[in-house]
Every structure is written in structure tokens, then in C-alpha cells.
Design a protein around this nucleic acid. Structure first.
Lengths: 411, 411
DNA sequence: GTTTCGTTTGTGAAATTTCACAAACGGAAT
DNA sequence: ATTCCGTTTGTGAAATTTCACAAACGAAAC
């Protein structure tokens, strides 16, 4: 790649990181921070202006705050930095006090040794200046190598490893096994990713309560736990005493109930992805858990008792169907007709149909939920069959009607 | 657009089309045909070599054979020719005796007056020669205008109009109304597109029988009919006596049965798209009918009694779901488990589940179809619930299982 | 050969669903 | 106010489904 500038101002030996950082600050004219691969602070410029709360937090605690790291993982900022050798622009993330900045990885070939951050909020760096940053990263490499940063600290790598698993960062299962080995964690034979979304941000106190509840639940064995704003993410496996997938459902409803009972924390939504045996599926399991949560928000009543991905049933495919419907719209004729009839006669046939079908065509159940006599329901169903030209004994037709009714609710 | 050649050899007045065509043949060195917008033959070169059966047919009957026109519509050749001013290459279509050739529309501004065809099978025309063809088309314009080709003949325009409707060629409903008016056809208030696929090619004799059957059916009123190889396409509306959508289903099964009874023609598959009130949806209805046929081929037993698009039920969405599954594969855990169990114990649980669910959870029906005692079925279902961790009272779960089972059959 | 385990079938009673019919109800039109 | 029409509710009988239990079956293991 052709360099945009003529000369490399960092092509000289630096005695220390501080010396280097002073040079970078002088060249770029904005606050600069250097951290190692574990996000521990190594050096920072004393520039006055343009320091946001994320940077302050980093300097104070000598480490990038966990909240910030988690968010940067989730936004795929760190994965991208790890993959590229060039500088990246990171847009503002208000919630974690992170203002506009650029960053680049310091690397020795494929291995990432650390990162340089520059807060260029005041005056955006030009493409040429970003290229300079790359030279600076090159100059940092020998300095970081000298620091023997390779000694990885278990506690600190743990979090990165967790996110790398969830983001599908690893190519092969061998890599993952290697990581487990290096971190001295035994790799469970099976696992699932669980996600809990709280109404409030999770405080340190609540986090303690969470840890306590998980430890005492006797249902699952927890392997990884991370707290991020109002989300709690777990990688867990069934407790040896009951090695069945069902335990996840049980654990989630247990957890939600007990958080209410014991600590009066309400409104938690929880979900679980599929159980897998190979950790290269961790990303899949995580995405599944997120999908369950999203659907639970869209269909709170329907999915009230659903916690596990496979319980979603046809809701799994609702977004795929919705996408198809957007490209080739199709109004279900029966729904259209019933809608019109309802409007003209003040009836309630469409809802009746929906309740009946979604409750497995159980007449008594549907009548109960609709507060009508069973015979009324049967009469209505007869009319619905006539008006909508529907065969309510045909599973395929019923499925389509129900799907279309659910999609209708999304619009 | 910059012309590829220096001079335009057709930039002189021609006394007749034959004079022009002799010039084109001389310049391009291959057989050339000129036809009007209704595919009537206007002039043709007497070149000896490289004449395929499509061209022979055209010359003999003074018109492009219907079979060829229909196919060119279906392959979107004619729509593309109508849309562009430049020459197009048409690949060989063996079945209709059409060999490699190029074609271009002759036009006065937006209006298409006719077409020039050149069979360059022997020696492919170069890009420069294709550009010459454009000049030739320009030279043909005044000659075709002189012929007063504007007088449109009803019978001949009919077919083009039909295809234009099916291909969604019209932008607005006004245009369509105008066309109906010009062709002196009254526009029905509603319509649906029906497609029948025969096992054999439809001969003239069979076509007569078809026309006869439709005319005497008393169920539908037919407005357009086209026969293409082994396909019969209709635009029809319900007979005034029973103005309901159901008549299409009835007509299709009636038609299939009577073609067998009366004329011993078996193996016809028929389908119908949705009924619409505006002809700008003709393309949609046609596509729906085709989709029904396609699915009937993929699921012959399941869709044996399905003729109308809306009867497809969830099958409508199967391809959308399949596409989704390809991007993010998900094995249904219950299916996997049952499959394993079946293999280990020589049981038949997976099929039992499929038959039960697809027949609307009707135990007696399913037992009958599986040739087992009802209690056996119930026992199996109990085991299936246990092994697969399935809730067979949950409509959503059952839907997903059934969908996954059907998709499984596609693979 | 015997045992074991999971599956299939038969029986019968209890529970539930389905259906026809009559009556009541209530809004809209006359 | 009356009538009409479509909807709701109640009643009861018939049909069907569900369930528990016993016995038979058959393949695989001992």
C-alpha cells in the first residue's frame, strides 16, 4: 500500500513509550493513549483538551473500564481492530462516555500487542494523519515487545476470550481448545449461551446477588459470566445431576422468579440459545438467545413462557417470512374478508380465529380466553369457515393463517 | 453512445424493405428477417445457409409461429427487445427450433414498429456488426411507417397483450384499460390466472377439446387462453352464476377429471393464482399459479388436493424459510433426537410425528394412515413428547416441527 | 433358552367434543 | 313498535377422544 505522506517521522528509535507518545501527540495534536492487548494502560499524553469520560476512567484505573471494553466488543470495534493493520475511526458511543476517536492495533505480524487511541474530537484527523498513526504503531511494536507483555494474566484475558467466543472470532475448534488450556479453564462438554435483560442497569450489588443465585441454583453449572449495562450473559451447561436441555428453561424461570422473590428485582427477560457441544457454535447460541429476547419483546403474550430458542416454534421463521412478504406482498384473503366482516357487523371473528388457532384448535380453551360460551365459539368458527373459505381441519392452512395474523400484528 | 464504426452504410434512402434487407445481408453476411410489431413477416433474405426451423416456419406461414412467440415471451426475449434500442443476442432454444441469432427492435421513439432478426449461427457477429444492425433498424423505421402498420389487428395483438399482462409489462392500470378498449375486449371486473401443465405437448386436437371443456363447464368465464408446448394458461373469472373464488378450485379438479374421463388425457396438473380486481396484478396471479405447480411437484402427496394459491398454506413460505435456513443452519433438536432413536430402535417415531401433525393432530386419521392401532399412536406420541422434549399441545412448536420436517424432505 | 426392554394391541370406563335444536338477545331497518 | 337478521346461550344426546391397565409380541442381550 502506498503511503500518503513522504517521510515517516517515527522512523527512529524511541527510548520509552512516553517518549513515543510525546512525539505522536506533537505530530497529531490530540490526546493519545497506548494500552496493551489486555487493555491495561501503558502510557498516555498529558494533553489538556478533548478528554472524555472513557479516557479519564482508563487513566484513573490504569485500565479501560470493563463497561467500555464490553461495549466495544459488542459493537465489533475490537474484533475489527484486531483484524486490520490500519487505523479505524470509532464513532461516538454516548452511553459509555466515549467520544469520537481513532484507534489502531500495535502488532507483531499477526499477534496484537496493544492499541493506540487518539481522541480527535476537536479536529478530525486527515487520511494522511491516520497513515501517520500506522507508522506510530510500527514504532510502538519494539517497545511493547520489550515489556514482555506476552505473560498473559488469566483474569484479564478471560473477558476477551468470552467475547471472542460470542463473536465467532475463532476459526477452528483447536484454537479454542488452546485458549481454554492457556487460561486453565476446563472446557465443558456442552454448553448454551443465556442472556438476561434487566430493566435497570446492573449494579455491583445486583451482580453479587446474581452470582449468588447462580451458584446456589443447583440447575446449571456456569462457566462464563459477563455483565454489561443492563444485560447479563452466561455460558453455562446443565448441572451434572440433571444433564438435560430442559434445565435451561427451568433455570431461567427460576432465576427470574427468585430475583423477584429475594431481591425484588422485576421485569427481567431471559433466554437461552441451543445447547452445543463444540465451542465454535458459541456465536450461534448467543445469536439465538438474542433472537428469543427480540421476539419476546415483539410478542410478549405469545412468548411469555418461552425461554429457549427451540421453544420459539414458528416464530423462528417469522422474520424470514416477513422479508419474503415485503418483496412479494400477499394479503391473506380470509383475513381480509373477516376483517371487513368484523367491521361491518361489529363481530370479533378475526380475533376468535387467532385465539382458536394459536391455542392448538382447542375450543374450550379458546372460548374461555374469549369469555364466551363454547357453542358461541363453535358457531363463530362455522361462520369463519364460511366467510373466509377456510378449512380449519387443514394444518397447513391454519399455519399460514396464524403466521399471517402474527405478521399483521407487527405492522 | 459512441458508434463503434466510422460510417453508417445505411444512411441513404431505401425504396423498399427488400432493398434494405439485401443491403443488410450483404453487410452482415447472414440470413435476415424483418417482421412487424405483431410478428408478421415483412421481408426476408434469400440467403442459403443457416436457416433454422423457426425461420422456415416464419417464412412459410408469413408469421412467426405461435409456439415461438410464446416461448420468446416466456423467456423475456420480447420484453427485453421492446425495452432496448440496441441489438440483443438470443441464445439457442432447441425445443422450438430456434438457433443462435441476434435481434433488434425497429422503433419510432418509444413505439416498437417491428423487429430485425439475423441468424448468425455460422459466424457470430462482432460488436461492431451489432452496432451496424442498429443503423439498419434506423433505416427501417421510415419504411415501416410507410406501411401504415399502426392498424392493429385484433386477433394478432391479443396474444401479445396476454403476455404483456402476465409479464407485468404495463406500468399503470390506465394503459391496460386502453388496451382492452383498443382490442374491443370487455375488461372483467375480476380474474385469476390458471395454469395447467400436461404430460405431453398439447396438440391442436387437444386444444379443441380444452376449449370445448372450458366453454361447457359453466363454472368459469374464460377471457384469455394460450397454449404453449405442454402448458395451458388461462385468465378467467368466476361464472356470473356463482361469483365466488371457490369455483377455481372446482373448475380445476373438474377440468382434470373430465380431460381424463372424456378424452383419456391423464397426469394434468392445474393451479390457480389469487383472484384480483385490477389487471396490474395479473403478473402476481400468474406467478402464484406457477408457484403452486412447482410446489405440487415437490410435495405431490401433501398438495394433491391443492389447486389455489391460498390453499398452499404454510407451503407458501417454505422457500423463504429454506433460504433463511441456508444462511443460518439450525437443526431441529427434536427431529435430530427422534431420528437417532428411530435408527437405534427400529422405530418409526419421526414419520409418526409428521403424519400426526400434518393431519391436524387427528389421532384416528394418523393411526389409520400409519396402519396402526390408535393406542399405538398414542403411545408413540407419548414417547415422542419425551424423547423430543416436545409440547404437542403448542401450536407454534408443532408448526415449526412440521415446517422443518417438510424442509428436510427437500434435502 | 430365558430374560429384559420397548413396542403393539385390546378392553372398557371416563372425559371431552361435536352437533342439532330451541330460545333469547340486540342492533338496524322499516 | 315491529320485524328481520345474525349472534349468543342453554340443553341434551351422540360421537369421539383420552386414559389406565393388562396382555401379547418380538428383537436383542444374557
Amino acid at each position: 500500500m502506498k503511503e500518503l505522506h513522504e517521510t515517516n517521522p517515527f522512523k527512529k528509535p524511541f527510548g520509552s513509550l512516553n517518549e513515543l507518545i510525546d512525539n505522536i501527540t506533537a505530530v497529531l495534536g490530540c490526546p493519545v493513549t497506548i494500552e496493551d492487548a489486555n487493555h491495561r494502560l501503558l502510557a498516555y499524553s498529558s494533553h489538556e483538551d478533548g478528554t472524555d469520560s472513557a479516557r479519564v476512567g482508563t487513566i484513573i484505573s490504569q485500565r479501560v473500564p470493563e463497561k467500555v471494553i464490553n461495549r466495544l466488543w459488542k459493537e465489533k470495534v475490537i474484533p475489527r481492530l484486531m483484524q486490520t493493520e490500519t487505523a479505524l475511526r470509532i464513532p461516538t458511543i454516548e452511553e459509555i462516555g466515549l467520544r469520537d476517536r481513532v484507534a489502531i492495533s500495535i502488532r507483531k505480524n499477526q499477534e496484537v500487542l496493544g492499541y493506540i487511541w487518539a481522541v480527535d474530537e476537536q479536529k478530525k484527523l486527515s487520511a494522511e494523519q491516520l497513515s501517520l498513526l500506522k507508522d506510530a504503531a510500527g514504532a510502538a511494536t519494539p517497545l511493547l515487545l520489550k515489556l514482555h507483555l506476552q505473560r498473559k494474566r488469566k483474569k484479564e484475558n478471560y473477558q476477551d476470550f468470552f467475547w471472542q467466543l460470542l463473536m465467532g472470532h475463532y476459526q477452528s475448534n483447536e484454537e479454542i481448545q488452546q485458549q481454554f488450556y492457556e487460561l486453565q479453564i476446563t472446557m465443558p462438554a456442552q454448553f448454551a449461551v443465556l442472556v438476561f435483560r434487566f430493566e435497570q442497569e446492573i449494579t455491583g450489588k445486583v451482580e453479587e446477588q446474581i452470582t449468588y443465585l447462580i451458584a446456589t441454583s443447583q440447575k446449571i453449572t456456569n462457566h462464563f459470566l459477563i455483565v454489561m449495562e443492563n444485560e447479563l450473559i452466561l455460558i453455562a451447561s446443565p448441572h451434572p445431576s440433571q444433564p438435560d436441555e430442559k434445565v435451561f428453561k427451568e433455570f431461567i424461570s427460576y432465576f427470574i422468579m427468585e430475583m423477584d422473590n429475594r431481591f425484588s428485582i422485576r421485569g427481567i427477560k431471559g433466554s437461552s440459545g441451543t445447547i452445543y457441544h463444540s465451542f465454535d457454535r458459541a456465536e450461534t447460541s448467543y445469536q439465538q438467545a438474542l433472537k428469543v429476547l427480540k421476539l419476546k419483546e415483539q410478542f410478549p403474550e405469545d412468548l411469555q413462557k418461552v425461554f429457549h430458542y427451540h421453544q420459539l416454534g414458528i416464530f423462528q421463521y417469522l422474520d424470514a417470512i416477513l422479508k419474503e412478504k415485503k418483496t412479494s406482498p400477499y394479503e391473506h384473503p380470509a383475513i381480509t374478508k373477516l376483517e371487513n366482516y368484523d367491521r361491518l357487523h361489529n363481530t370479533n371473528f378475526l380475533e376468535t380465529l387467532e385465539v382458536f388457532v394459536q391455542h392448538d384448535s382447542n375450543a374450550h380453551e379458546a372460548a374461555r380466553l374469549l369469555f364466551v360460551h363454547v357453542n358461541t365459539l363453535n358457531y363463530r368458527l362455522k361462520r369463519i369457515r364460511e366467510i373466509g373459505d377456510l378449512d380449519l381441519k387443514n394444518a397447513y392452512e391454519k399455519m399460514a393463517v396464524l403466521v399471517d395474523l402474527k405478521i399483521r400484528r407487527l405492522q
